[in-house]
């Protein structure tokens, strides 16, 4: 049971990490990245590090997401197409 849950979390971590990198819409990338942080927080809790879990949930999923969103609002939302 515990191992299966760990595997699900790790698979979700890898999936969200890849999605966040490949998303063209930067706002979507930021939101996916906050999901990554949330899963990471659950992971810390499962590794018996509640201190880190609290920090990751507050800073990783909360504060940095908002700071990124503010930055996107001030710049452009779409990534520029590559010029080859």
């Amino acid at each position: 049971m515990g191992t299966a849950l760990n595997l699900v979390f790790i698979a979700l971590l890898v999936a969200t990490a890849l999605l966040a990198v490949f998303a063209r819409d930067l706002l979507a990338a930021v939101i996916i990245f906050s999901v990554y942080s949330l899963i990471m927080a659950l992971m810390w809790q499962r590794l018996q590090a509640p201190d880190l879990a609290l920090t990751e949930a507050a800073v990783g999923a909360g504060v940095t997401t908002v700071l990124f969103v503010v930055t996107i609002f001030k710049t452009r939302r779409r990534e520029e197409e590559e010029k080859e």
């Binding site: 201190d51 920090t55 507050a58 909360g62 504060v63 908002v66």
Partner: peptide, 16 residues
């Protein structure tokens, strides 16, 4: 678990 860093980040989050 928790402490200054975490609590401070949570206050910051509520302000945000």
């Amino acid at each position: 678990p928790g402490g200054g860093f975490q609590g401070g980040a949570i206050i910051g989050g509520s302000m945000i």
